[in-house]
Amino acid sequence: MGGLDVAADIRTALRAAAVPERAAGQQAYMKSHMPFLGVTVPDARRIARSRATAHGIRDAASALPVARVLWDDATHREERYAAMALLALRGVEGDPGIVPTLEHMVRTGRWWDFTDELAHRFPPLLESDPARTGALLRTWSTDADLWIRRVAIIAQLGRKDAVDRVLLEDVMAPNLDDADFFIRKAIGWALRELARVDPDWVRAYVASHELSPVSRREALKHL
Rank of each mutant, 00 (worst) to 15 (best):
G3Q: 01
D5W: 11
D9Q: 12
D9H: 13
D9G: 07
I10Q: 01
R11F: 11
A13H: 11
A13K: 07
L14T: 04
L14I: 07
A16M: 08
A16K: 14
A16D: 10
A17R: 14
R22T: 11
A23W: 06
A24N: 08
G25P: 00
Q27A: 11
A28R: 15
Y29S: 10
S32M: 06
P35W: 00
V39C: 07
V41I: 15
V41N: 14
A44F: 03
R45Q: 10
I47C: 00
A48L: 06
S50Q: 12
T53Y: 12
D59Y: 06
A60Q: 03
A60W: 04
S62C: 10
S62N: 10
L64V: 14
P65G: 05
A67W: 02
L70M: 06
W71I: 07
A74E: 01
R77P: 00
E79T: 11
R80N: 04
A85I: 09
L87K: 06
D95F: 05
P96G: 05
V99E: 03
P100F: 11
E103G: 12
E103P: 09
H104P: 02
T108W: 05
F114C: 12
F114G: 01
T115D: 04
T115S: 07
T115F: 03
T115P: 02
T115V: 13
D116E: 05
L118Q: 04
H120Q: 14
P124L: 08
L126I: 05
E127A: 13
R132P: 00
A135I: 02
L136N: 02
R138G: 03
D145Y: 02
I148N: 09
R149Q: 12
R150N: 00
R150A: 00
R159P: 01
K160Y: 12
A162E: 15
E169H: 07
D170S: 15
A173D: 14
D177L: 14
D177T: 14
D177C: 11
A179L: 13
D180T: 13
F181V: 02
I183H: 04
I183E: 03
K185W: 01
A190P: 09
E193Y: 03
L194A: 03
L194I: 10
A195Y: 00
R196C: 12
D198T: 13
Y205I: 05
L211V: 08
L211R: 01
L211N: 03
S212H: 08
V214A: 10
S215P: 08
R216M: 07
R217S: 09
E218S: 00
E218W: 03
K221T: 12
K221W: 08
H222T: 14
L223F: 14
